[in-house]
Amino acid sequence: MTFETIKSVLGANVLAGTDLLQSEVSHVYASDLMSDVLAFGKSDSILLTGLASQQSIISAHMAEFKGVVLIRGKRMKDEAKTFADTHGMVLLSTAMDMFEACLALGAQLNGSVTAPRPAPDRATHETIILNSRFNIEGSDFASAGLVSTEVKSVLKKIGIDSSIVRRVAISMYEGEMNVIMHAKRADVDLVLTPQYIELLIDDEGKGIPDVNLAMQEGFTTSTEEQREMGFGSGMGLPNMNRNADELTVTSEVDRGTVVRMRFHI
């Protein structure tokens, strides 16, 4: 492959060696440790490194690499660019990390890369780490937010990534408000497995006649009073849809609604 190809596959910027982009490279070496770089004795090679120092360019030159790609958008002194230019080396910079850059160049060199095998089906031997149940009473505005707060603190204590915890908490809050505003009561099940977090909100209430309509932003059945309190702006289900990785809503009029949300870990 040519440097031109490498540049386009990695979405890289050219820092030096603009006039050498047509030359060919047939080996890739990924390392940040210069003693290792020197030991890699193949010609027509390119070095992928996160070590953004002029010395790394000099080492690569000594080891007869034709070019260097800096990963993770690292910056380089002007002296290093000048060194590369005067010694006939191509210097590129990509925002990709080492894994992504290796994968992209591996695909170019080998024609293709084995596609990821689908994750083994764990449904039959799923490990449930945690299964907790909470209750919500309809019209209990004084307790609004307690269940989502509890869910949040449970997940945080376990050490779930804070960005996921935030999405779960927002979705739970919306679900909780829906129950308080529109239903008699609900059971909430929080299930945690190594792969996902699931929230199951099963309410007794008047149900939703048209689930698709309720999923649209802005649709609301809230009363004037509820809206004045800042609830029921019609963002409940759409907001859950935005925050959860999977959302299914099933409803039966005059019986109730089941909202199932999954968040991948």
């Binding site: 940040d32 440790l33 210069m34 003693s35 020197l38 070590l51 120092s53 010395q55 790394s56 080492s59 000594m62």
Partner: peptide
């Protein structure tokens, strides 16, 4: 020693 040319 990242730049050292001797093995660490």
């Amino acid at each position: 020693g990242m730049l050292s040319l001797e093995p660490p």
